[in-house]
Simulated scan of single mutants.
Amino acid sequence: MIVVGVALAGSVGAVVRFVIDSALRARSGSSLPWPTVLINVTGSLLLGLLTGAVLFHDAPAEMLTIVGVGFCGGFTTFSTTSVDSVRLIVARRYASAAAIAFGTLATTLVAAAAGLALTTLW
């Protein structure tokens, strides 16, 4: 049953990511992939919150598996960040590529840690 939950949640996460990413890119005039960065940071924050709920507040571990692995796994898209970084390198925008690659890594780690820390305040 958990496998089905992960699959369904992953599908929902991927669709939500597509809708949000498409809407943000349509409104953004930037050639940088900020919508992807925002989605990854938001997904990492949610994963930190879910992890904290399980670790510190006795939330069911199945919730972390289904929502964390499923939804957050489908919602976040680190492979797209990699492709975006390579595209920026091909376009010889080296500083932008580095900012996206390393900035995404740093901000997603901070977001996950912040989500985990926030759950200790409940």
Rank of each mutant, 00 (worst) to 15 (best):
M1I: 12
M1T: 14
I2S: 11
V3H: 10
S11H: 07
S11I: 12
S11W: 14
V12H: 01
V15M: 12
V16M: 02
R17G: 02
V19E: 05
V19Q: 02
D21T: 12
R25S: 08
G29C: 03
P33F: 13
T36M: 10
T36N: 12
V37M: 08
S44Y: 06
L45R: 05
L46P: 14
L50V: 04
T51M: 10
F56C: 08
F56L: 15
H57P: 00
H57Q: 13
A59Y: 11
A61Q: 15
E62F: 01
E62I: 02
M63D: 14
T65C: 09
T65S: 13
G68R: 01
G68Y: 01
G68P: 00
F71W: 07
G74L: 14
T77R: 01
F78H: 07
S82A: 13
V83I: 11
V83T: 10
D84A: 10
R87E: 15
R92Y: 06
R93L: 12
Y94K: 07
Y94N: 14
A95M: 14
S96C: 06
A98G: 14
A99N: 04
F102V: 15
G103K: 03
L105A: 15
L105G: 07
A106I: 13
A106G: 09
A111Q: 05
A114D: 11
G115V: 08
G115T: 10
L121P: 00
L121T: 11
